[in-house]
């Protein structure tokens, strides 16, 4: 009976055994996306999941586990078996939540970064009918009024970056108008309902079409999708960089061989010419980091967003 069951388990390919890097993956791999289908993380996970499935003899499935700003999925993966078969796909939210939430029932230390290959910088834009011109002129225009800015929601990178910019860097009174998702925030700007929108890749096609007036982008270099928009650094706000990224994580204590295997596989997929072009067109910036660099990047991000979160006094309980 035992042998029969073992044979059946082997045949169906779902047998569990000690996780070894050389025979990884020996069963199906689950990508747990921390957000609902259709978003940034989900789209990315599906691209990578599909290509991983093509490379490996084992199926790769994508499971959405949205909730509590990405914390539900992060917590569930952090307590999963550290065997490389449960992978968290999440965004900047992971770094932000470490300081935004008053209490979390997991820590970033319980996760190991595999790869953080793509990011899209935050940028701010206005409706051309509301305001034409550059950032300097906008700040002058904003004197004596309160800038209403639309974002994807409270605690999103777009929200924190914009609020940090207005409160700390530009010292301009502002009021946050949270929407449910970046698309609706962009819509509010397109309809000239708010003074300004802060968003990552969501605004880029509209800026490119001159439906929105891009003021500045929070990256080290200008973005290919909207080359006319200057960086904050060019405008005198040196060092103000904020991007929303997507990253892959496994539970801490996952064997380093598996982490390396995954890191290489994901980076190689992103570097495939067709995939690379696709991602660049949509407005992502790509970076190849090994697992150790990804870990350091996560640490730096937690630190950076922590500074912004504390500076503006944002908190969620």
């Amino acid at each position: 009976m035992r042998r029969l069951l073992a044979a059946a388990a082997l045949l169906t390919g779902f047998a569990t055994g000690p996780a070894m890097a050389q025979d990884y993956p020996a069963k199906r791999v689950t990508l747990v996306v921390a957000f609902a289908p259709g978003g940034f993380a989900d789209t990315f996970a599906r691209i990578i999941g599909q290509k991983l499935g093509e490379r490996w003899p084992q199926p790769v499935i994508v499971e959405n586990r949205a909730g509590a700003g990405g914390n539900t999925a992060a917590k569930s993966v952090s307590t999963a078996a550290p065997d490389g078969y449960t992978i968290l796909v999440t965004t900047t939210a992971l770094a932000i939540n470490q300081s935004l939430y008053k209490k979390l029932d997991y820590t970033a230390d319980s996760l190991t970064a595999i790869a953080m290959p793509a990011s899209s910088p935050e940028s701010i834009a206005t409706h051309p009918d509301k305001f034409k011109g550059g950032l300097k002129e906008f700040l002058a225009w904003a004197k004596g009024r309160e800038v209403t800015f639309a974002t994807a929601g409270v605690g999103s990178g777009s929200h924190l970056a914009a609020e940090y910019f207005f409160k700390v860097l530009a010292k301009t009174p502002s009021a946050h108008v949270p929407f449910r998702g970046g698309a609706l925030a962009v819509q509010a700007a397109l309809g000239n309902q708010v003074d300004l929108v802060s968003s990552s890749f969501g605004v880029m096609p509209h800026v490119a079409e001159r439906k929105l007036n891009g003021l500045a982008v929070a990256s080290a270099t200008r973005v290919a999708a909207m080359p006319d928009v200057p960086t904050f650094a060019e405008l005198g706000f040196a060092g103000f960089e904020a991007a929303s990224w997507v990253g892959f994580f496994v539970p801490a204590r996952t064997p380093s061989g598996i982490v390396t295997t995954l890191n290489r596989a994901i980076n190689d997929i992103v570097a495939e010419p067709a995939t690379e072009k696709q991602l660049l067109d949509v407005g992502y910036q790509l970076a190849r980091r090994d697992a150790a660099q990804s870990g350091q990047f996560l640490k730096a991000e937690i630190e950076k967003w922590g500074v912004m979160v504390r500076a503006i006094g944002a908190t969620v309980d």
Binding site: G38, T43, R46, I47, A183, P205
Partner: peptide, 21 residues
Amino acid sequence: NAVMALMVGAMTIHGIVPGPQ
């Protein structure tokens, strides 16, 4: 709506930038 959000994802996957263009 949520279904259309997924269609945006589908466009993105296929390298089409959803937007006025």
